[in-house]
Design a protein around this nucleic acid. Sequence first.
DNA 1: TGCTCGCGTGCAACCGGTTGCACGTCAAGT
DNA 2: ACTTGACGTGCAACCGGTTGCACGCGAGCA
Lengths: 346, 346
Amino acid sequence: MHPVARLEGRRQAPTIKVVAAAAGVSTSTVSRVFSHPHRLKASTVAHVTEVAARLGYKPSHTARALSTGRLGMIAVVVPDIANPFFPPVIRAAQAHAATDGVSTVVGDTDEDPAKELDLLAELERRTDGVVLVSSRLPEDQLREVASREHPLVLVNRDVAGVPRILVDSVPGIRDAVDHLAGLGHRHIAYISGPAGSWSDEQRRAAVRERCAALGITATVLRPHRPEHDEGRAAAAEVLATGATAAIAFDDGLAQGALAGMAEHGVAVPGEVSIIGCDDILAATTYPPLTTVHGRGGEAGRLAVELLMELVESPEADRDRRVSLPSHLVTRSSTGPATAGSPAPRR
Amino acid sequence: MHPVARLEGRRQAPTIKVVAAAAGVSTSTVSRVFSHPHRLKASTVAHVTEVAARLGYKPSHTARALSTGRLGMIAVVVPDIANPFFPPVIRAAQAHAATDGVSTVVGDTDEDPAKELDLLAELERRTDGVVLVSSRLPEDQLREVASREHPLVLVNRDVAGVPRILVDSVPGIRDAVDHLAGLGHRHIAYISGPAGSWSDEQRRAAVRERCAALGITATVLRPHRPEHDEGRAAAAEVLATGATAAIAFDDGLAQGALAGMAEHGVAVPGEVSIIGCDDILAATTYPPLTTVHGRGGEAGRLAVELLMELVESPEADRDRRVSLPSHLVTRSSTGPATAGSPAPRR
DNA sequence: TGCTCGCGTGCAACCGGTTGCACGTCAAGT
DNA sequence: ACTTGACGTGCAACCGGTTGCACGCGAGCA
């Protein structure tokens, strides 16, 4: 930039130099006031702070980043911002990061592993670390990403050697199956979620296992994108199996299934019972959805906590694994099994 | 940083200096290869590019930002990422920004004006410009924000002197009212959206005006947060007015109203017709929703286009206003008016 | 009174690119 | 053959902070 160019500009943001001159100290002192104030005399800190405030001085993230290598920014990457499971984890992460004076950016991979890789590459250059939620990457690629020097914490992917926070659906799913069995259901369908989802694998396995333990039938349906209309389509698939109850990978699919059942003239919970997962739609469905409550927000907060540790000391333990148990929330989409299997009426 | 510290680090990212040495040119030349290649001999560019690629060199955003004042990053700020109206505009914005080699971050204000102000302040220091979508700020504050030197483009807020892209709901709403009138409806309720929403004001006024023009009754209900359960509550309010049709501020409210009507045993479209806005739920409701289609994605793209112009030349015209007309999409939530007003049945 | 020690501050190099200016080269113009 | 000038590249200052080292000063100790 030409030397005089910044004089031409309107009110230029004040720099450390201006503050130093105004306060009658060196630039180093001003710098230290904003980074290591404890190393200075309290009176100096007070004076410089006052002058800086009067001038409206704010340290430049960019300049600081250049010399320290710290951007003061982390990323939270999710497969789909529109999926209501993620906003709570993002918000919690953001709130916790703000506590450390770190800002958060959100990345959306659109459920696409290729985009996910690109995004991670970009974010490695823009942030100090990333929280990767429900990654759709195959394990080897995930491991490769983690092996790059950039701090990374996973949420809902269980890869040994990579720090991770897991929302453990198993207890909640077990409760769900028990609940349905207690209502007399002998055949349960599981509406699978997206291929490559760790949570889906975990839930599917839990349904199978618990049904087996109780001696009732479990049918696992094909993978579904976690969207409303896929759930609607799944309703027909559920009816085709003859199951009297369904557990869906998430609340969105469950809500779709509710709509699908309505279309087929099948009453919920009169003829078929439906259970969701994540408890993100709360009571916004009709009928209000019985669902497995997972603690997304908590996962987000913990992930950032762990991430910040890694950022501070990159040599920290890379194999930390935190698991958060879930539980069933009973609302009105489940009821007693009726004799005879349900059939579409229109 | 201590001079030898970077030798201790693992594979340090190569700098311009390393590339220059390896290619036998000066650092200026390497720099120019990545910023103004046309000023260099083609053979030099080719050679340096090759060497840089071999070394895995990537220019540092931070360093570049420090000298140029350009961060290579813009922000898109929305009131609520979970509201499905916004993802399409975000994605379109992101895609267009990527075209210019600029990355995008997303900000969520949680429908809270105070958070919005904070977020804007933070983003001004982190980005080259921001696209502010459906701001909930009062006009004077918005004007104040716009007066700060940081480039800003509004979407769905019409403030003179601030560049803005507007999705014009009026034509679509007019079609909607005409459509209902054509089906014999003589009393239409409008389910208002969030207070402070420009789109809501526009839609409300359009409903009133068109109904007046056709000589039919319009009742405007209280403001609602654009969420499913608010829509459900609104169903009762609609029934209380005696209206046989309702137009909702957005598809989420409309979907909620659908659920609410079901709860009350009122058939849609048999007894009551419902129309949404934005066309974001597409056919994911039951029955599929008749709605006013607005072109969110297009708005996002245009906003970024305008923003980049402002970033390039801050003295550009600040009073540009682009308006994108909407239209009605007829699906199955609207039907002929029936004699006698509908009443809750349970 | 003289010496050590530690605290508070300043100096200057550095982080990794960018860019105004100067210099050298070579082709076109006279 | 000499001038002119465009073109390609290098030099060095600069962007705005950070930080290792050195220096000065005053307190504690002998």
